[in-house]
Lab assay of single mutants.
Amino acid sequence: SKIRITWGDKTWEWDGDDEEVWKRILEWARNLGDEELWRHVKEWVDK
């Protein structure tokens, strides 16, 4: 399956939905430097 994140007018996609993928997404969000996006992603990961 895919994980799709839409933020503003951008959309990103990742293949898979296991823990490793979420770790990569969390790292990606942090590297993007958008605090609010990172917080949202972290909330999803922690669920």
Results as ranks from 00 to 15, higher is better:
37 L>A: 04
28 W>I: 02
11 T>Y: 13
12 W>G: 04
34 D>Q: 03
32 L>D: 06
30 R>G: 08
24 R>P: 02
6 T>Q: 14
46 D>G: 06
14 W>H: 01
16 G>K: 10
29 A>F: 05
32 L>R: 06
12 W>V: 08
9 D>H: 02
2 K>C: 03
18 D>M: 12
16 G>C: 09
44 W>G: 01
43 E>K: 07
17 D>V: 07
29 A>K: 00
9 D>F: 01
6 T>R: 10
47 K>T: 11
9 D>R: 00
9 D>Y: 01
40 H>R: 11
12 W>Y: 15
32 L>T: 15
26 L>G: 02
26 L>Y: 05
36 E>W: 08
3 I>Y: 02
32 L>W: 12
4 R>D: 02
23 K>Q: 14
14 W>K: 00
27 E>T: 06
28 W>Q: 01
11 T>G: 03
9 D>G: 04
25 I>V: 14
17 D>A: 14
5 I>P: 00
16 G>Q: 14
32 L>Y: 15
43 E>M: 07
9 D>I: 01
6 T>L: 09
28 W>C: 02
19 E>W: 08
27 E>R: 03
21 V>W: 05
17 D>F: 08
35 E>G: 05
16 G>M: 13
13 E>H: 03
33 G>K: 05
26 L>E: 05
25 I>Y: 00
3 I>H: 04
9 D>L: 01
45 V>G: 05
34 D>I: 10
46 D>A: 10
32 L>P: 01
21 V>G: 05
18 D>P: 12
8 G>M: 07
28 W>P: 00
22 W>R: 07
7 W>M: 07
23 K>M: 12
36 E>F: 05
43 E>T: 07
15 D>T: 10
41 V>E: 00
38 W>F: 15
5 I>D: 00
17 D>P: 09
5 I>R: 00
17 D>T: 12
11 T>W: 11
19 E>N: 15
39 R>N: 14
40 H>W: 15
43 E>A: 11
23 K>Y: 13
15 D>Y: 09
39 R>Q: 14
33 G>V: 06
26 L>A: 05
42 K>R: 12
15 D>I: 11
15 D>E: 12
8 G>P: 01
41 V>D: 00
7 W>P: 00
7 W>Y: 09
15 D>A: 10
14 W>Q: 01
2 K>P: 07
26 L>N: 02
28 W>T: 01
43 E>F: 06
1 S>R: 12
28 W>Y: 02
8 G>D: 11
39 R>A: 13
18 D>W: 15
43 E>Y: 08
31 N>K: 12
42 K>H: 09
19 E>H: 14
44 W>A: 06
15 D>Q: 12
35 E>A: 07
8 G>F: 12
39 R>S: 10
30 R>C: 07
1 S>P: 15
31 N>T: 13
37 L>V: 05
34 D>E: 05
30 R>S: 14
36 E>R: 03
37 L>K: 01
26 L>T: 06
41 V>F: 05
5 I>S: 00
7 W>Q: 03
20 E>D: 14
6 T>M: 10
38 W>L: 15
34 D>K: 01
26 L>Q: 05
33 G>A: 09
24 R>D: 10
32 L>F: 15
37 L>D: 01
24 R>L: 15
18 D>I: 15
45 V>P: 02
12 W>N: 03
35 E>P: 14
40 H>S: 14
32 L>I: 14
29 A>L: 03
23 K>I: 11
40 H>E: 13
34 D>A: 03
3 I>L: 09
38 W>C: 10
35 E>V: 04
44 W>K: 03
24 R>Y: 09
21 V>N: 08
47 K>Y: 05
44 W>P: 00
46 D>T: 10
6 T>S: 11
33 G>D: 12
9 D>C: 03
2 K>H: 08
11 T>C: 11
23 K>A: 12
22 W>L: 07
30 R>P: 01
8 G>S: 03
2 K>I: 07
20 E>C: 05
9 D>T: 02
17 D>R: 07
46 D>E: 15
40 H>P: 02
